[in-house]
Design a protein around this nucleic acid. Structure first.
Lengths: 181, 181
DNA sequence: CAGTGGTTTCAGAATCTTCTGAAAGAAGAT
DNA sequence: ATCTTCTTTCAGAAGATTCTGAAACCACTG
């Protein structure tokens, strides 16, 4: 039956989305809530989610808040109802932008900043050391420099992607896929 | 002193690399070992790593193996020494390729496959259901389709990136950053 | 203001991940 | 074969994360 198929398909998607997330440092429930809201276009309330995901009120509440903080879901008020309902951001490109920005800020920026600091430390120490030590230092610095330039490139790439949007990226891929350059 | 600076810089880098990794579903020690080998051009043996990272032999051994499996580090034999030494893959672009391929295989492919399966389920159920239900099903399918096409684009993008290499990506970014398209 | 319906918080429980250390397993050296 | 040196394995310990449920909280209603 149609109703069954719909529910089954949704469950399957929710489960897999949750599994994927746990490999990326995001809690399973948080991802499942997100998936449930994404795959169900109707707004859902806390009790809906508790039932659907078999999780406690506290758990749902906490993870909803996190998702709101990230900006991946939005509150919806149904007039004449005191419950709060939630919907997921539907535009996937927008979703991608939010996640990318947030993770860049939280995880990439600190390491980039650290690399800079490490290089500064190496640059400062001009005095002393034998030939061998000096050469080690040079090698170490080169590796850090490589890393730094990798992050710079990736950073630039994300900026360009967000600028040209989904269509633009598709276009670039199409242009470059076939020929040699 | 030069020696101190070098050690300090290395420690700092190792620590931060480990912290970053834990946000990405990779164990701290595994990342630290990788960082230590990357930042120290000399090959290191198990005991070196045990001392440097203050971790047990078992822990180091297991994580070394994982890194070998990923292909992020390589064995090195010093002749006249029975110990095994290890070095990190030095080419960052290569590193990126390895990690991307592996994570794509383990985490992205399953979800893509699941989306296909979900859509197939929805497509099969032609019979029954009221107007409202049918419309829900259509919306659900459209969302899945959007998701699918997002993954297709990203997949294509990674393929192109790996094809054109670091220089190529830098080139693209440079070309597209300034002007409108 | 007390009552009602809903949300948030948080201490402790449950669960999952990672780490240790000792024992077993290799493999070259004598 | 036996010793020696190094590596791997794995059961249980330690640690980190996530979840629960009950109490506190908030805000609207009568």
């Amino acid at each position: 039956m149609l109703e069954q198929s719909l529910q089954q398909a949704r469950s399957l998607f929710i489960r897999r989305w949750g599994e994927m997330a746990s490999g990326w440092g995001i809690s399973r429930t948080m991802a499942e809530i997100h998936a449930a809201l994404f795959i169900t276009s109707q707004p859902l309330c806390t009790d809906d989610l508790m039932e659907r995901l078999q999780a406690s009120r506290g758990n749902i509440s906490m993870n909803l808040r996190q998702l709101l903080n990230w900006g991946l879901i939005h509150r919806v008020h149904h007039q004449g109802d005191r419950k709060e309902y939630f919907v997921a951001e539907a535009d996937i490109w927008q979703m991608f932008e939010i996640i990318t920005r947030e993770r860049r800020r939280r995880e990439v920026e600190p390491i980039v900043e650290t690399i800079e600091r490490c290089r500064a430390m190496l640059a400062e120490s001009k005095s002393g050391g034998g030939e061998a030590l000096r050469s080690e230092l040079t090698t170490c610095d080169r590796r850090l420099a490589d890393m730094q330039s990798f992050f710079t490139t990736m950073n630039g790439l994300f900026n360009v992607m967000l600028k040209v949007g989904a269509g633009g990226v598709g276009e670039i891929v199409r242009r470059l896929r076939g020929d040699g350059k």
